[in-house]
Design a protein around this nucleic acid. Structure first.
Lengths: 332, 332
DNA sequence: GACAGCAGAGAAAACGGTTGCTCATGAAGA
DNA sequence: TCTTCATGAGCAACCGTTTTCTCTGCTGTC
């Protein structure tokens, strides 16, 4: 059996209160010698305070929940890594939940996080416009910052300027003379898809180019989806000479399809992805992309959440990062 | 303030004990009508039992720790995903720790997991032969299963037959007539590197081919490392016609270097990686690889750990999976 | 010499649950 | 009618902490 604070107290011939003070570095009111004595015993017995018992009284678990749609998209591991790292620096441990893109699973996970009394949650929702998770979190008063995908504006959030990123990418294509620019979207309802689409649309409209619905498709954030979307699009609309993809994976899938169809990149067709994940560097040809500063965003999300938890930041602050257009081998 | 069990009891005009019985489905000893009444109140108030308080008395947190070296290598996200999914099915939530390949960070993480009273830990250690983490876990009696990388045999483990996988890969090269086969290793001390190397060595020796130290290098499990290792090797030993890489990322890096040197693959040089991660499918050319059944391994690791936690499985069971040689575009 | 003030430490009440034990009640069996 | 027993429910102790309040001496000041 692991020793408890009472054991330490008994052996050191002091009260639990004194031991507690020593443990928590609130040593005012404890003489140096008793302190030393207690520390020695703690060390000898390998005593570890029971954080559960502690949490229950101080009403704080030093634990965060991180809820993401899908670890399979390399964007998220990178984000997760940054978040965990920063959280740990701040003394927090994080529960990771991978929802497999399913909003119901997400809702279940969130409930279990609330039951586990996490101090806060970082959420990249799998849901579209409305989400049971956000309702639960709000109802139980759990601090939350939405990341990447943002639903409503009632919670804090950290995101990229999706519209601007896609606007610039599309604008670039227009400047290069393209007139038939395809849009390969993620899931239709997801906020990132919607915002990125609006950048695409706005750029076209700003140049007086008609938005052709025929060139717009939706799928999900995966290579195979990119493949499929590109396949149907290119067979029906061989006039396409440029492609805006909603993420790098989609772009990779699209490139593969194009190459298979004997279309050379970037000569006959240019393509720009989104995210700037590592695979997009490695893939041949190197994917041109709208890059997100993933690490900084991760860091900022944690700082923001902890700020909210500790009450130093208001709970509806929105942080928007600037995307950078990174042109490589799939553009001229 | 969230309602507590006492609130429910007071409102329902029963004792805490009765409410507790209802919550825990130990309804023998509770009449149907009081049960219904209590459930109704619980529902109306949105009462959620405080799992911390519960854990402290039943001495069980329904929480697992998952410690990995680096989420950046796509092998791990896939593993993590499988583990989280399965754990969740079994009613467990998991703390994820990414150690950034640093054994000291790992040791810290493990200590904090122990403090948080996880029921068990799944560990893919960043360390070489000895690890502070394992010592701590053992000392505090926390059930653990090592996964992927296995140090010592004192704990349960789930792993692939590394030696066999590399033996077969090397054997294949030998059969194809190669005599100058390079070995691109991961970190020198890591168990997977060591075991995979022994497969390579044994295959050579079994065929009476001299093991040439000049063709053996070590680095880490990354694309850039693969690049570097291949670069130095190929400049010194242009006679190399086949390469055994310790993981797919290394293989990808190596392929990139070879292509840059104008060496065609697989015609002038064949290469086989290890793991069978998704990028290796996507990369062009598609990497031939020794495939691990990652999802099954993840599942098995969780089942094993929970078995140990609940006492139905002995704590030193070792599970070894069979690798499959998946030959694609980097081999003839 | 009286007294204020402070440092060091303990007692005990929380925190929100679980659980062993006891007890009252009413039905069944002799 | 009396005993037995099962059922439904409460009491209170306990899990391992923190924290407020109180108490005891001792030091320093006037």
């Amino acid at each position: 059996m692991r020793p408890t604070i009472s054991d330490i107290a008994r052996i050191a011939n002091v009260s639990k209160a004194t031991v507690s003070r020593v443990i928590n570095h609130k040593s005012q009111g404890v003489s140096t010698e008793t302190k030393e004595r207690i520390l020695k015993i703690i060390d000898e017995l390998g005593y570890l305070p029971n954080t559960l018992a502690r949490s229950i009284v101080v009403d704080e678990t030093k634990t965060l929940g991180l809820v993401i749609p899908d670890l399979t998209n390399p964007f998220f591991p990178q984000m997760v890594r940054g978040i965990i790292q920063r959280a740990s620096q701040e003394g927090y441990t994080v529960f990771l939940c991978d929802c497999g893109n399913d909003p119901e699973t997400e809702a279940k996970y969130v409930m279990s996080l609330i039951e586990k009394r996490v101090d806060g949650v970082i959420l990249a929702s799998s849901a579209d416009c409305k989400t049971a998770s956000m309702d639960s979190l709000k109802h139980y008063g759990v601090p939350v910052v939405q990341v990447d995908r943002v639903i409503g504006d009632s919670s804090a959030s950290v995101a990229i300027d999706n519209r601007k990123g896609m606007f610039e990418a599309t604008q670039r294509f227009i400047q290069m003379g393209h007139r038939h620019i395809a849009f390969l979207g993620g899931p239709k309802g997801v906020s990132t898809t919607i915002q990125r689409f609006s950048g695409y649309r706005d750029a076209l409209e700003a140049s007086g180019i008609e938005v052709n619905k025929e060139l717009i498709t939706y799928g999900d954030f995966s290579i195979s989806s990119g493949r499929e979307m590109m396949k149907t699009l290119i067979s029906r609309h061989p006039e396409i000479t440029a492609v805006i993809a909603c993420c790098d994976l989609i772009a990779i899938g699209a490139v593969k399809t194009l190459i298979r169809h004997g279309i050379s990149i970037p000569d006959q067709c240019e393509i720009i992805g989104f995210d700037g994940i590592e695979v997009s560097d490695v893939f041949d040809p190197c994917i041109s992309t709208v890059r997100q500063p993933i690490d900084e965003m991760a860091e900022e999300a944690v700082k923001l959440l902890i700020g909210i938890v500790t009450g130093t930041i208001s709970s509806n602050r929105h942080i928007i990062f600037e995307p950078t257009l990174d042109l490589r081998k799939t553009t001229k």
